[in-house]
Design a protein around this nucleic acid. Sequence first.
DNA 1: GGCGAATAGTTAGGCGGCTAACCATAAAGA
DNA 2: TCTTTATGGTTAGCCGCCTAACTATTCGCC
Lengths: 181, 181
Amino acid sequence: MPNLLLKDLPRYECLLEAAKEFPDLDPSACEAFLHLLRTGDESARVVEANLARHNITQGRFGVLMILVNRCAGDTSTLGPAELADAAGVSRATMTGLIDTLERDGLVTREPDTVDRRMMLVRLTAKGRSLLEEILPDHFKNMTLLMSPLSEFERQTLVQLLTKIQQQAIKFTGPVSAATAV
Amino acid sequence: MPNLLLKDLPRYECLLEAAKEFPDLDPSACEAFLHLLRTGDESARVVEANLARHNITQGRFGVLMILVNRCAGDTSTLGPAELADAAGVSRATMTGLIDTLERDGLVTREPDTVDRRMMLVRLTAKGRSLLEEILPDHFKNMTLLMSPLSEFERQTLVQLLTKIQQQAIKFTGPVSAATAV
DNA sequence: GGCGAATAGTTAGGCGGCTAACCATAAAGA
DNA sequence: TCTTTATGGTTAGCCGCCTAACTATTCGCC
């Protein structure tokens, strides 16, 4: 989510220097953190640049992917709330995404006749064919981006990231637990 | 930059399954990629949640950090263009960030008397003291977030990320090289 | 049966990304 | 010199993200 990141990450010596002034600064932690955000950001840009050629954004693409996965056969009902939840985004955001997708004819929105609060979002044929057009390139990009890493290195990376991820949950987790009370 | 990411990353078996349908899909590359974006995103959220308590965003914080680093002594001139460049953000975006920072009294904008196209952005005392207030917590957060990793693991992580990063440059690099011609 | 709580979706308003277009000024060159 | 080009900064408009407030509907319980 950063998108604003120092263009040139500080050199390690600078971090060591800064650590003298700030006792809370752990140079290796800081370095790892900055590299993580930076690399994540750059990687996102790579795939986004490609999605943009098909006139779609990461966010909208994500919605299409959820739809095509969840509504595998045909008429699996999916409302904005479920979509937002699956995408890890607020409902308001999902409303906006669906608006755009609907405008572009990639999904339809129809009211649920049973529960009249609900809307049913459905992938159109156009949406499905757009995905089929995008996916090969998309996968190729991911493959190419990760090509410098061996299988073993990829495993290692995922393991390390998972540890960080679990730690991150400890920050956000207690908050949502508190709201649940 | 993602912010919309599947909440639950696909399990590896699903990727293997999907790979049958899409020959371009490299399961381990895909898995590593998704974890990278996810973890980067979550990590960004962690520090952002903390910055938000001080009523500041990642982007604005970045600008302040650049200012305090670059204008170490006192009157190092820094214009929006240089700031945008250092932050890796467009000039238009930087204008917006400076607007907000100025409104909040954290920086000042004064015209350069020599080159009258230029503006000089300067950190105010308030901006400086805000940073001093924020930084200890900020550093603690990074330290805590990375605490599950040993020194060796952090090194490994940075190495792997650097490889990906260099690969990412190959995507975006040629483009900017082309525009430079 | 009816009232309050929960739930689905949208709207409003703010922020921060971006590109493209636009002025003002400075620099370079015929 | 004077025009062209480059450069610095802003503006306008789009998108996607958020929270908070709102409407409509359903559920649950008295």
